[in-house]
Design a protein around this nucleic acid. Structure first.
Length: 576
DNA sequence: GCCGTTTTCGGCCCGACTGTTTTCAGTCG
C-alpha cells in the first residue's frame, strides 16, 4: 500500500508550504493526507481500476492531488516534492517530531547551521550553537535537547490497552481531590483509538493551582513540560505525555467536546455552528458575545442542532451527516456481551500462565456471562496445548461432564466447546470434518504463510468459509497493532462469501484488534454478523473484552451486529 | 487546493502558550 507513503509526502509538502507562508494550501494537503491515511483500499488499485476519476471521488482529492498521485504511481516520485526537498534537504518529518520545533525553525536551523536531521540537531545544541540564533535562545536550546531525549525514550504511540488502565488510576486520584468537582479523560483515549499519543485529563477545580501542583508531582513524572494558568503537561516514565486542563464549570461540556476531538470532528462541528450564526469554542457556544451553551456536551450538541455524538464516532467519517439526519447508530455496549467464544485453556490442569477450563468458566461467571466457548489451538500449530482429533473428543467429554456438574449445582451457565483450527495454505482445515461436526462451533484462522498474493489468500479463506463446519473466521486480516501489517486479502470478496455462507467474522480484542474499525463498518453495511472475542491465552485476559467492544463501537456496530450478545440458544441457531 | 441541500467563487476552526524580536511569530492541540 502506497497510501501511507503518499500521506507522508503530502504532510511534508504542507510543511514546506507553511514555511513559504502560502495560505490555505497546507490545509488542503493535510486534509488529503488524512484522507489517504484513513483509506482502507490501496490508492494504486483505485487508480488502476477507476483512473483519475475514481481518485477524485476520494474526499480531499481534487485535480492537483490526483495529478500527484498518478505521478507517484507512474514514476515513484512527485516533482513538486523533489523540488521542495532540493531547496531544503532535511528530514522534515523527523525534526518536527521534536516538541517545539516546527517547519519554520527547521528552515532557520538548516540555513544557519546546516542541520539536516536529529543527529545534527543534537550536536549543535550540545555545542550551544542554537541559543545565539535570532529567534532562538537558551530556553529553546534546552527544550530541544530535552525534546530529543524524550524522543529517544518514547515508544511512539502506545497501545490503548496498555495506557487506559494507567490513565484510569490517575483519573481516580484526581477525582478524589477535595477541590476537584468534575474530572474526565479526553482526547484519543476517550475516543478509544487503537493507539494513544498522549493522555488528556480535564477537570473542574475550586483551586486550579493546587490541582496542577498535585498533577505535576504525581509519581512517575520525569519532566514538567509546561505549566500555565489552565494547563499542565508532563512527561512520564514509559515514554508518554500527560496533559491536564482545568476549566470553569460553565465551560466543562464545551471543553470536553473540544479536548476529546478529533480535530476533524471539531472543525466540522464549528462549521455547523458558523452556518447557524453561532461560534463554538472550548469556552462554549456563543451567539454574539452571549454564551448559550457549554456546561454539558449534550447542551453543546443541542445548541448547534445535533443529537449527542458518542466519542468513538467523532472522526468526521460521516457521523455529522448521520447526526443531522437522525441516523446515528445505537452503539453496542460492554454490558450487552453474554459470552466469550475465543478462549484458550490448558484443558485439564492449571499450568504456567494458562488456566483450566473450570477456572476460566468461573472467571466468565464473575464477568456476568451466560456462557464461555473454549477454543484451543489444533494440531498444525505446534504449541504445547494444540489438540489433535482424539484430544478434541476427550476435551469434549470433559466439558460435557463439567456442564452436567454446573447443572446439578443449579448454575445457569454453559461451557460451549469449539476449537481454533488452522486454515492451511490450500484452504483446508487441519481437523477432520467428522470431529469438527461434533463441536458446538469452529473458529478457523490463518496462522502461517501470511505472504501470499491477494487472490490466493482470498481463495484460501473463501474455501475455509465454504466448509459447513466453520462458523467463525478468527482475526480475519492477520494484523497485530504496532507489530504486523495485515495480509493481502480482497475484503469485499470475503464479506460477500461470509454473507452467502453465513460465516461470522471475529473482532479480536487482543493487541490484534482485528477486524479494524473501518472493516467493521463495512461488514455491518453488508449485513455480515460479527463476534467480539478476547483470544484469551493467559490468566485474566478475559477483561480485554472491553477493547473489542470499543473497536466495534468505533466501527459503528450495534448490538444486533454482534452474535455474542445473544442468549446461548439463539447464539447456537445463528451458527451454521 | 478543495468544495458546495443557500455558493462553480469565495470562503477555509479557534484559541493558548512560549520565548523573545517587547508586539508578535511559531507551535501546539
Amino acid at each position: 500500500m502506497i497510501n501511507q507513503e503518499l500521506a507522508k509526502i503530502f504532510n511534508d509538502i504542507a510543511r514546506f508550504l507553511r514555511i513559504e507562508n502560502v495560505a490555505f494550501k497546507p490545509y488542503a494537503y493535510e486534509k488529503a493526507a488524512i484522507s489517504l491515511e484513513d483509506l482502507k483500499d490501496d490508492v494504486a488499485q483505485i487508480y488502476i481500476q477507476g483512473g483519475r476519476k475514481a481518485l477524485e471521488e476520494i474526499s480531499g482529492i481534487g485535480k492537483a492531488m490526483s495529478d500527484h498521485i498518478e505521478e507517484y504511481i507512474k514514476t515513484g516520485k512527485i516533482k513538486l516534492y523533489e523540488e521542495f526537498k532540493k531547496g531544503l534537504p532535511v528530514n522534515m518529518d523527523e525534526l518536527t517530531r521534536v516538541e517545539g520545533l516546527g517547519p519554520r525553525k527547521v528552515k532557520v536551523l538548516y540555513q544557519k547551521l546546516g542541520i539536516k536531521n536529529l543527529k545534527d540537531l543534537e550536536k549543535a545544541a550540545k555545542k550551544h550553537e542554537i541559543a545565539p540564533l535570532f529567534g532562538f535562545g537558551e530556553t529553546t536550546e534546552n527544550n530541544i535537547l530535552q525534546g530529543i531525549e524524550f524522543l529517544k525514550h518514547s515508544k511512539g504511540r502506545s497501545l490503548l490497552q496498555d495506557i487506559l488502565p494507567v490513565a484510569r488510576e490517575v483519573l481516580k486520584v484526581l477525582e478524589q481531590l477535595k477541590e476537584v468537582q468534575r474530572a474526565s479523560l479526553a482526547g484519543s483515549l476517550r475516543r478509544r483509538k487503537e493507539t494513544i499519543g498522549d493522555v488528556d485529563f480535564l477537570v473542574v477545580s475550586k483551586n486550579p493551582k493546587k490541582t496542577m501542583d498535585f498533577f505535576v508531582a504525581l509519581p512517575g513524572v520525569q519532566k514538567i513540560w509546561g505549566k500555565g494558568g489552565t494547563k499542565a503537561s508532563v512527561h512520564v516514565k514509559g515514554g508518554f505525555d500527560m496533559d491536564l486542563r482545568v476549566v470553569p464549570e460553565k465551560s466543562y461540556g464545551s471543553a470536553l467536546q473540544y479536548f476529546t476531538g478529533s480535530q476533524a470532528h471539531n472543525i466540522a462541528t464549528r462549521k455547523i455552528a458558523i452556518d447557524k450564526g453561532l461560534k463554538l469554542s472550548e469556552y462554549g457556544v456563543f451567539k454574539g458575545s452571549k454564551q448559550i451553551a457549554g456546561k454539558t456536551e449534550e447542551d453543546v450538541y443541542k445548541a448547534i442542532g445535533l443529537p449527542y455524538v458518542e466519542p468513538e464516532l467523532r472522526e468526521d467519517q460521516g457521523e455529522i451527516d448521520a447526526a443531522l439526519h437522525g441516523a446515528l447508530p445505537k452503539l453496542i455496549e460492554l454490558k450487552n456481551i453474554k459470552g466469550d467464544l475465543h478462549v484458550h485453556s490448558n484443558w485439564e490442569e492449571a499450568d504456567g500462565g494458562k488456566s483450566s477450563i473450570e477456572t476460566l468458566a468461573k472467571q466468565a461467571m464473575e464477568l456476568g456471562y451466560e456462557y464461555i466457548g473454549i477454543s484451543d489451538h489444533t494440531k498444525d500449530l505446534k504449541v504445547e496445548t494444540s489438540l489433535n482429533e482424539k484430544q478434541l473428543l476427550q476435551e469434549n467429554e470433559y466439558i460435557k461432564k463439567l456442564n452436567a456438574k454446573f447443572l446439578a449445582e443449579g448454575q445457569k451457565f454453559r461451557i460451549l466447546h469449539g476449537c481454533e483450527a488452522n486454515i492451511r495454505k490450500d484452504g483446508s482445515i487441519d481437523i477432520d470434518d467428522d470431529v469438527l461436526e461434533k463441536l458446538d462451533y469452529v473458529i478457523a484462522s490463518v496462522h502461517s504463510v501470511f505472504k501470499m498474493d491477494k487472490s490466493q489468500m482470498t481463495n484460501r479463506i473463501e474455501k475455509a468459509m465454504q466448509n459447513p463446519n466453520v462458523d467463525i473466521i478468527g482475526h480475519p486480516t492477520g494484523r497485530i497493532v504496532n507489530q504486523r501489517e495485515e495480509y493481502q486479502v480482497d475484503f469485499d470478496k470475503i464479506l460477500k462469501i461470509a454473507k452467502e455462507t453465513g460465516t461470522i467474522l471475529e473482532i479480536n480484542s487482543s493487541s490484534r484488534l482485528d477486524l479494524r474499525d473501518l472493516y467493521i463498518r463495512r461488514a455491518k453495511a453488508e449485513g455480515v454478523k460479527m463476534v467480539i472475542n478476547t483470544d484469551t491465552h493467559q490468566k485474566n485476559q478475559m477483561y480485554l473484552m472491553e477493547y473489542g467492544v470499543a473497536q466495534a463501537r468505533r466501527g459503528w456496530a450495534e448490538k444486533d451486529d454482534i452474535i455474542n450478545t445473544l442468549p446461548v440458544e439463539q447464539l447456537l441457531k445463528n451458527l451454521k
